[in-house]
């Protein structure tokens, strides 16, 4: 094994992989949210935004490949770590004392991640697929992306799945943000509490930001009529 693969296969190496890919995804989410805010400004703004992305398509494709790689590595590594870490305990305790010594968010990263994964599959299968590949309603061809969003955000179960996933995304980010700093070795008694606060604010912002869209369209835009 080369020294680099040995590094990546060590326990700390695997954690670094989670932190590098996770941090990349943290940045992606900010950009994704900012772009999607155009939804609140009506069909023209949103369709214009999606159309503008079309102009720089080659660049977007490159970013998408990196994004896919980040997700695949993050999910694959997360699954591997979860299995290994379950095995490391061996026999479970009869009494679970962990609520007394650690935060719920930190202990449920695999659960929150798995729900995000289910969401991700459905998200790509609906919006990404229809925008980019094939839209049976023929709306994407005529650049009426906004109407596709209105359609899905009018389906009650889609909205519920979306909102639940965003709450769990908030959980994942609340722990993940500061956890990545710790994994990179950036922990100092003086400024770490600030990093934890910034992470919590980031998590709340992302969860509310993304969840506000389906809620707005379902209840206020008349998606459910």
């Amino acid at each position: 094994m080369s020294s680099f693969t040995k590094f990546l296969n060590s326990s700390i190496g695997k954690k670094l992989m989670m932190a590098v890919t996770g941090s990349f995804l943290l940045i992606f989410l900010i950009i994704h949210l900012i772009g999607n805010i155009t939804l609140f400004f009506g069909a023209e703004a949103f369709n214009g935004y999606v159309g503008a992305l079309d102009v720089v398509k080659p660049l977007i494709r490159v970013v998408e490949v990196v994004l896919l790689a980040a997700f695949v590595l993050h999910i694959f590594n997360g699954l591997k770590l979860w299995i290994e870490n379950k095995r490391a305990r061996g026999v479970n305790y009869k009494v679970n004392g962990s609520p007394e010594n650690s935060a719920l968010y930190s202990r449920t990263m695999f659960l929150s991640g798995s729900i995000i994964f289910i969401f991700l599959v459905s998200h790509l299968g609906t919006f990404f697929w229809r925008f980019n590949v094939y839209d049976p309603m023929g709306l994407a061809n005529i650049h009426q992306y906004f109407d596709i969003v209105v359609y899905f955000f009018g389906i009650w179960w889609y909205v519920i799945l979306y909102v639940i996933a965003m709450v769990l995304l908030g959980f994942h980010l609340n722990h993940g943000f500061q956890s990545a700093f710790q994994t990179f070795g950036w922990n100092h008694k003086k400024y770490f509490p600030l990093i934890q606060k910034i992470g919590a604010i980031y998590a709340v912002f992302m969860a509310i930001g993304f969840a506000s869209m389906p809620i707005y369209f379902f209840f206020f835009y008349g998606g459910n009529q």
Binding site: S10, S11, I12, N85, A88, S98, S102, A103, S106, M109
Partner: peptide, 18 residues
């Protein structure tokens, strides 16, 4: 030290701070 720690089958750190 990390090499031996990994070989012995201890888990990795998820930063729960327990």
């Amino acid at each position: 030290m990390v090499k031996v720690m990994d070989e012995l089958g201890f888990g990795s750190c998820t930063n729960t701070y327990a």
